[in-house]
Design a binder for these strands. Structure first.
Length: 643
RNA sequence: GCUCAUAUAGCUCAGCGGUAGAGCACUUGCUUGGUAAGUAAGAGGUCACCGGUUCAAGUCCGGUUAUGAGCUCCA
């Protein structure tokens, strides 16, 4: 039979040859590192017979696919077996691979905690030491059911039962045949290929991801081909931990949370300073881009939310207020706004709008409350009260494309200035829970896709993830350590304006319904500040830092000079303080460095006599002696860049 | 909302039935020191909240609240 290789060369092999035979035919080195094959694009076990002519590529252990297969074998054959050895009554559910690792879901008679992980790891190592080869057996549905019934693996039974397949269920065994697992494969040919691994955590997970189902125990692990790669991955995790905005927020005295107001931020002076700087920056950009800033009420009668559709579609996430006994005579039910859009329509509806007024771009730093489920809150990243850099563009259908283009430019400039050079665009289409007719949705989805296509931006489609009132573009940025954050959004809405009776008079003198575009760049200030903190590991750019300069005296004789410098800095609008305490300079440097103050001026006798400053920047141990004049000018320039 | 875990001094944590501990931070004394911790002393706690078991409860048990890791959600 004729086998075509990835480089388009081909080889003749006898009928009945396997991937392993092919690898051997190509070279002994390849045969040694081969773990599986891809036959016409489908991954197969290395020893599967290749049925007739095919394009085949050998998957080696050091390839991405190879590592994934290794992780898969590690979880399905080694972790699963170790769990069965240690907890014989447990039942196996599923064990897939994930980014950088794998997990296995089990139902366990005894709860497994993170303390048990090292015990399980030891058991896994014992299994790996057997260097057992892995073989598979193809069986019919009834035989597969029989095997799992005997083994009391009820989840496997469910999987087999629900499968559309009739036969060729793949059962994988190790040499001693004492453990069997159902798996679509492929697996490593033997356990010698298993690299370095670590079990990382244990948590609960629903069977099939459905919260109506039983909660299983999920054991997570990470694995790489060698100790070095594993270690570097673990180091990355540790780096992310070091950047945790909750930890840095405490160290830098930015904000706190407390029991009485879960999910709502108490901003301290330093954190609020960042917030204000960021808001001023955005405010400036909005003005430059012809947005009108407005402000709408926090608490609004349910009637408006009923009209907008929120009451129907979003009520369980809204904070509802009821008037107490004292005001019983004006009984009404209000809701704290979860979004600003209905409010903006109210402003739009004041007075008659002409097509000449469009596009009309409203912006609001709108404080919204959403009742997030208790288990979902996470520092600044997921809160119940937050301020959006929200905006609503009222325009005609003809203006959709130009507004899309203007917005993407607006957003990418802001991201770049805040230190994020790359972002991806996601196009989300109609969700199940929605308002508006299918025809309207067809129109909205087509318009948005046409706009993004004509503008030439790359995008990917996320089916069913749209807002309840319309399709949207989401903007996902990548931070300094490669994590992705969905921030900006651009949502087309052909429904709300109509529901709330917004109209404009067209050229034809008739009333028309405007298109509404809901848009945000940062998303929420709270979350975005969290992202900034983690992106910069607390070392914010000079213009954003709450405290920009500390002038630290080395000896008390120079305190007057330090105070003079602080005054000069403050006069230039730079947030500077002095540190005149009776402490050593290294103590002061340590303290202000750990608080991430970008610039420390160390002032001693030499500096006072020469009217210079010794400058130390955060993240560097170098110091530079500059003329006071020059140092002031440099910082003034730097501060002006984005202010 | 679900599962599991956690809640002790401002912070980080130890203590796990018998009168509350450490390091850092804080206050005071000494120290005026050149770029990531000078030194000594002192002060500081209804051990999250409510209930139970016990002669005796941070300590054991139940509940509540919050937080953490996941899951499910995130218009």
């Amino acid at each position: 039979m004729k086998i075509t290789l990835p480089d388009n060369s081909s080889r003749e092999l006898p009928e009945g040859s396997s991937g392993y035979d092919l690898a051997k035919d190509i070279g002994p080195g390849l045969a040694k590192s081969a773990v599986a094959v891809s036959v016409d694009g489908v991954q197969r076990d290395l020893h599967d017979v290749i049925e007739g002519d095919a394009s085949v590529s050998i998957i080696t252990i050091d390839s991405d696919q190879g590592i994934e297969i290794m992780r898969h074998t590690l979880t399905a054959q080694v972790l699963a077996r170790a769990i069965k050895n240690l907890y014989p009554k447990s039942k196996l559910a599923i064990g897939p691979t994930i980014d950088d690792g794998f997990y296995y879901d089990v139902e366990s008679e005894k709860s497994i905690s993170s303390d048990d992980l090292s015990k399980i790891e030891d058991e896994m190592k014992k299994i790996i030491k057997t260097k057992s080869s892995i073989t598979k057996k193809l069986v019919s549905k009834s035989e597969a059911l029989k095997v799992f019934k005997e083994n009391k693996e009820s989840y496997k039974e469910i999987i087999v039962n629900e499968s559309k397949q009739k036969d060729n269920f793949q059962l994988y065994y190790q040499d001693d045949k004492k453990f069997v697992d159902l798996c679509r494969g492929p697996h490593l040919p033997n356990l010698e290929f298993i690299g370095s691994f670590k079990l990382t955590k244990v948590s609960g997970a629903y069977w099939k991801g459905d919260s109506a189902n039983a909660m299983l125990t999920r054991i997570y692990g990470t694995a790489f081909n060698n100790e070095k790669d594993l270690q570097s991955h673990l180091d990355n995790l540790e780096e992310a931990l070091k950047r945790d905005h909750r930890k840095l927020g405490k160290e830098m005295d930015l904000f706190h949370f407390q029991d009485e107001a879960p999910g709502m931020v108490f901003w301290h002076q330093n954190g609020w300073s960042i917030y204000r700087k960021l808001r001023n920056f955005i405010r400036g950009r909005l003005k430059e881009n012809d947005y009108i800033e407005v402000n709408t009420p926090q608490v609004i009668d349910r009637k408006l939310w009923e009209a907008s559709g929120h009451w129907d579609k979003y009520r369980e996430n809204m904070f509802i207020t009821e008037i107490d006994e004292e005001h019983a005579n004006e009984k009404r039910v209000n809701a704290l706004k979860p979004m600003n859009c209905p409010g903006h329509v109210q402003i739009y509806n004041q007075g008659i709008k002409s097509y000449k007024d469009l596009p009309l771009r409203y912006a609001e730093f709108g404080l919204c409350h959403r009742y997030e489920p208790s288990g979902t809150m996470h520092g600044l990243m997921r809160v119940r009260a937050f301020t959006q850099d929200d905006g609503h563009i009222f325009c005609t259908e003809d203006q959709i494309e130009s507004e899309t283009g203007l917005f993407i430019k607006f957003l990418s400039d802001i991201y770049a200035d805040l230190g994020f050079k790359n972002f991806d665009i996601k196009l989300s289409t109609r969700p199940e829970m929605r308002v508006g007719s299918d025809e309207t949705w067809d129109k909205a989805e087509e318009a948005l896709e046409a706009a993004i296509k004509n503008l030439g931006y790359p995008y990917r489609i996320d089916e069913g993830d749209g807002a309840f009132y319309g399709p949207k573009l989401d903007f996902v940025l990548t931070d300094a350590i490669g994590r992705e954050w969905q921030c900006g959004t651009f949502q087309l809405d052909f429904n709300l304006a109509e529901r709330l009776d917004a109209t404009y008079v067209g050229e034809d003198g008739q009333k028309h319904t405007p298109v509404m575009i809901h848009r945000a760049v940062l998303g929420s200030f709270e979350r975005f500040i969290g992202i900034l903190i983690e992106n910069y590991a607390g070392k914010l750019p000079f213009w954003l830092a709450p405290q920009q300069v500390v002038v630290a005296s080395i000896i008390s004789d120079v305190n007057d000079y330090s105070l003079e410098i602080m005054d000069l800095l403050n006069k230039e609008g730079i947030r500077a303080e002095v540190d005149l305490r009776n402490e050593k300079i290294s103590y002061k440097v340590r303290e202000h460095s750990s608080k991430k103050v970008p610039v420390i001026f160390a002032i001693g006798n030499k500096e006072k006599i020469d009217r210079t400053v010794s400058v130390r920047r955060i993240g560097s141990t170098d110091t530079k002696v500059l003329d006071l004049e020059k140092a002031l000018n440099d910082l003034k320039q730097e501060n002006r860049e984005l202010n």
